[in-house]
Design a protein around this nucleic acid. Structure first.
Lengths: 188, 188
DNA sequence: ACCTGAACACCGTTCAAGT
DNA sequence: ACCTGAACACCGTTCAAGT
């Protein structure tokens, strides 16, 4: 008979991971401090010790987690390729955690999420784009929106249990719209 | 002293209007069956009589309300103008009720919302666009996303009380990205 | 037919208390 | 320092009961 395993100490990171798993598999509505405590083998109240802001801070952290992305600009030959790389990375991060998309789109970007936007703007400016701030705004809008539409279309509704299979239709639709938008930005 | 005014009978429409007002002014998190009942001068339980699906049905109805739009195609000379008209109408409907944007983007379109998509696709096909379904998907994505980004930028966060003032920056950013996308669709 | 009151299982969060 | 137990105000929803 195995001994009772010593409890892994709670941490901000473990809390966020467990919360993402619950939101993705059961929907944001079922992400509850008490359920989160259960998943972490701990009373719900213990969470407050590691996340002082309570549930609101947890939701902020989840939004930040799926909107923080890095792209290495050295691989891209033109601002068009660079913009496309940022968009693909952003889409992948959002699709990885469909349960918290609504938070990602709703919460104003803070911390690492805001840093992501600044870096993207900087890189596109360096790559020679005339209005990088406007472009980043348009590209972000497209990424958010296309992921939302894709999840609507694949039938991932909030409380369902469907894992997100990579959707070839979603891929090509995304790439087509993306080329269209980038082509349009080049003419502006 | 005025007499106690006779209670206006409850109706699905009054319920939805009151719910939108609460969500817009106080945030979706504070939209509660009990608070909704208070706003309607009625016990919360009375609502179930008019909205059999309970709160889930209410949220569906709210999403439907802000994603249902009509556009008269006779005013547009080209599919480009027609597409722009649909996008502006869609954006206006979403901006009118910022509190339920996350529902609009998350819930799969049903009923009149689905009908809106079908009609838009039909009209753009009639106007000569080659792949109307793909175009509508890209345009919807852009509208959803740009409204989300605009609301993030104007600082409308879920629980705040800010009314949505028309944002000239949002207007021009929207129009610029929109022209870019439509121009790109023309080349596809 | 339409609304209410009481009840149930469940929330988020506090606070004092344990170790 | 880190976690627990009990408590409080508040949820969504049911069901029998009122009118």
């Amino acid at each position: 008979m195995p001994a009772k395993r010593p409890p892994i100490p709670l941490s901000r990171e473990r809390i966020i991971d467990a919360a993402l798993e619950i939101a993705d598999s059961q929907g944001l509505r079922r992400l509850t401090m008490r359920r989160l405590g259960d998943a972490l083998q701990v009373e719900a109240m213990a969470i407050y010790h590691h996340l002082p802001g309570g549930k609101e801070a947890l939701l902020d952290a989840l939004a930040q987690h799926v909107t923080t992305v890095e792209v290495d600009p050295s691989g891209a030959g033109s601002w068009q390729e660079l913009a496309a790389a940022w968009c693909r990375a952003g889409r992948a991060a959002l699709l990885a955690h469909p349960g918290v998309l609504s938070l990602a789109m709703t919460k104003p970007p803070k911390g690492s999420a805001a840093a992501t936007i600044r870096e993207q703007t900087q890189q596109l400016g360096d790559a020679g784009l005339a209005d990088p701030a406007g472009a980043v705004r348009a590209l972000r809008a497209y990424v958010f929106g296309s992921v939302a539409v894709e999840l609507q279309q694949t039938g991932w509704a909030d409380p369902k249990t469907q894992p997100v299979e990579p959707d070839p239709d979603g891929d090509t639709a995304f790439e087509q719209g993306l080329s269209a938008l980038i082509a349009g930005l080049a003419q502006a």
